[in-house]
Design a binder for these strands. Structure first.
Lengths: 141, 141
DNA sequence: GTAACTGCAAAATATTTGCATCCTT
DNA sequence: AAGGATGCAAATATTTTGCAGTTAC
């Protein structure tokens, strides 16, 4: 955990969050993972170091600060992800593509792919667009 | 419920499901609603006529038969929807746009809007694409 | 020192499973 | 009549809340 220490504390500090073990640890887990994680994934990776309630509250705090965001899924699992650009630059842009691998289950944010505009019916106003692509990822193909 | 009786029984029969009160009733609820419903919504609309477990099992059965499908959401609610074309013609096409109103919470399937193609990075294969648009719907604008 | 964070206990909510009974075919 | 569907009870899983003790600043 030492390696990412600077990046982790920097993100927390920038968001006016006090630097605690659980926050550092959970944030580090996201950075190391590089993909989206469900509550359960986070919990299992902390290996019981922190109370389940702390994990819930930490995820919620990170959500409120915009450090992580949820990814829409068709099953009932809520997945959270830390998107590279958002976090390093401190501004949140939501409109990116998410890829869910049907083989390994990994969910990744494809920040670099922009979502094409679509034509909505009369009277509808879009504020945010999410695109979720299911298929086979690079590792599994 | 008499009005939709034919349509409802026809859908059930086509999917080799026995015609029971709860199935007719729940299917009718989806047809009447015209938008996506969470488990909770279905349950409250049955007004306690059926056991909660029956609702779970019925939704699962409908899912397996392809009568309804889930819609990706960013909150933890799973929403189920019956898409007009799918159900009337018995073939399932998943690639459509879903609109979630931030004001009234209604989720609708926009079957008529096709999802534009996107360019995925090397090695990724798309099988299904979901697009979820958040904004203000026609009724709320 | 103080405000905020954490852990524990417990409540509230959501989902699944087993089994006996009832209903559709 | 037989197989499948339902209701009930209960087990399991998930999420939230309150509060006392601890920690970051």
């Amino acid at each position: 955990m030492e390696f990412m220490e600077d990046q982790v504390t920097s993100i927390l500090r920038r968001n006016q969050l006090s630097i605690t073990d659980s926050r550092k640890s959970i944030l580090d887990i996201f950075i190391q993972a590089g993909s989206a994680l469900a509550h359960h994934d986070v919990e299992s990776r902390t290996a019981g170091s922190y109370d389940r309630v702390t994990v819930y509250r930490t995820l919620q705090t990170f959500m409120e600060k915009g450090i992580i965001h949820t990814i829409p899924t068709t099953d009932n699992s809520i997945k959270y992800a830390l998107c590279k650009d958002d976090c390093q630059q401190g501004h949140h842009h939501d409109n990116h593509v998410h890829f869910v691998c049907e083989n390994c289950g990994t969910t990744t944010c494809m920040d670099e792919i922009h979502i094409p505009a679509i034509q909505l019916p009369e009277g509808y106003q879009a504020r945010q667009i999410n695109m979720v692509v299911n298929g086979i990822c690079r590792n599994c193909s």
